[in-house]
Design a protein around this nucleic acid. Sequence first.
DNA 1: GCTGATTCGTGCACCGTTCTACGTAAATCA
DNA 2: TGATTTACGTAGAACGGTGCACGAATCAGC
Lengths: 346, 346
Amino acid sequence: MDDIAIHAAAARVTGGRVTIRTVAADAGVSVAAVSKVMRNAYGVSDVLRLKVAASIEKLGYRPSVAARGMRGRTFTLGVMLIGIDNPFLPGVYEGIESVASAAGYKIMVGVGAARMPTEVQLIEQMIDNRMDGIILVASQIAGKTLEHFALQIPIVVIGHHEPNAIGFDTVNNGDQAGAALVVRALVDRGYRDIAFLTQLRLQDELSDVGPQRELGYRQAMKDAGLAEQTRVFGIPQAEDERGQMFEKFLQDPARPRAVLCWSDLDAVPLVAAAFRLGVKIPQDLAIVGYDNSAIAALPMVDLASVDQDGPRLGRLSAEALFSRIAGRSIAEHVTINPRLIVRSSI
Amino acid sequence: MDDIAIHAAAARVTGGRVTIRTVAADAGVSVAAVSKVMRNAYGVSDVLRLKVAASIEKLGYRPSVAARGMRGRTFTLGVMLIGIDNPFLPGVYEGIESVASAAGYKIMVGVGAARMPTEVQLIEQMIDNRMDGIILVASQIAGKTLEHFALQIPIVVIGHHEPNAIGFDTVNNGDQAGAALVVRALVDRGYRDIAFLTQLRLQDELSDVGPQRELGYRQAMKDAGLAEQTRVFGIPQAEDERGQMFEKFLQDPARPRAVLCWSDLDAVPLVAAAFRLGVKIPQDLAIVGYDNSAIAALPMVDLASVDQDGPRLGRLSAEALFSRIAGRSIAEHVTINPRLIVRSSI
DNA sequence: GCTGATTCGTGCACCGTTCTACGTAAATCA
DNA sequence: TGATTTACGTAGAACGGTGCACGAATCAGC
């Protein structure tokens, strides 16, 4: 009797939405029992489990992640992407997703738009949303800031070098090695006058991939006895400025014989500008990119590029994150070897 | 005295994390007062506001979205994208983001990977996370399912036609008009044997953009007196199958003289296959895509394509969502006009 | 100086979960 | 058979906010 009255009250109070209380009332058990079944915790008989499962099925109950997050885990990972149209991301995301979904985890993505304040806000937002951990892809946030956030939430960073970080993990391809790979391949083909094109930006942090690749380029040039041929050009960010810069660069008679671009993001537009101006690739200019994006593989582009194996980076970072969520507290810094995909542009 | 003890207890109990209670204790006011300041609700004096603001600043307090979501709003929108590498998405996202951030809203993205069950799960997840509303971009979920979810959360759909939906809004470009535009442009240039290439899929719903464009194509062909020339080819999803299909298609002497592809997603690979096989564009075959993606604009691709104005679609959908969140309950279905970007491929 | 209205700030009951502590009954052991 | 363990289920206090209802204080009007 009393029981029934309580059930009715419970049903009324929730106003339409099926909550754990609705299920408990329907199954005739306590709220805690339903919670136990949901988490398949210890101390639940088969009879109880079946009863509760039936009610859940019948009512179409879905636990609220928000409410769950207030005490336990949310089983959700946050993934912060630098921007939506970066060619490096799809592979990485795919890798993360495969590991996460196998572990029963959901993913929420934040899009950073490559602007620093936005990225910090996104991290804060993911903390506020009680994600169990976050993966930052190609973030530009400084290590010190990250150490601060790492106190609040497990963090793994892809595409940003912080080998001395103690609060969070990093997963990278060997950016220096990748650039060196390219220099050696170009030298083997007889090129000597090899330049590096890097992203022009305000705060030039050494931990970013661009500067790392530049470092690898410089070292490899020195190792090849080409220290004097070393040339680095900065590419402006804005699209029209970049176009003008490429035009001037390509029309300069003193331009290098081969270039390594810090990313396909700039290499593809360079190929486009060369095409427009009638500069033949590789006869007039050899070009190599970085990221082995889908566009680079198109036959009319056919751009040689360094492949980072994004899916593997993604998988490794997700695994690192899970082990950190599980309790590991000493940092892991993983580096995998990139390889050069040779195409007709060299 | 007593006061101080309470403060200490409050600080101890929260275990490091700065909560609304920590702030209240620090400012020497009630929890409710802090909450009022946060929501800038009615009945707060300037003195109180300043005191609380100072404490918030000092402690670096950030409210928990999860906790807030249990009663009030989360000020977060969910955006479900069909997949991360779709050329249609960046523009749309940019549009949504601009409106959302202006309204002080955050965005969380779910990546659907174009698989139906994943998409449904993502919607459920966004409901579980207490988003204030969601925008589905190029979703393949049937209208009936959406009506069900629309009872639980405000929904706006982009790139999916459901003109009779009553529970949610839709924002689209005129897909039929877009295809007709292309047919007319081709006819004007003297083409007669014009085919349509559409995505081959299991459940061919008329509400999807592909079939809509096909409808527009068929009607425009009829209107141009070319009903007999009407030909539609289905393109398989898998990359290698598609490659084989394109190869056969391009080598067939009876192939059409011009084709309209349902999306750049297939048009660009077709251009690539033509390039590989030495089929000249547009001399041997004219090609038009849909979406006006960045790749289409590359000079070595130079693919004519229909522009949907993604940013505008994004803005309109965000505005529709906000008005729905504000209480509107009758559905809105917006259509904007696409335009053809002419390039050397026709 | 009294009444009624207005302004501010607080106490407290939620929101939907998790999880610890505890009670009870059945099973095992001496 | 009595004592002890084990298995199961429940009550109730968190978690970190929101927002209603209420009381105290200030103010205006007469």
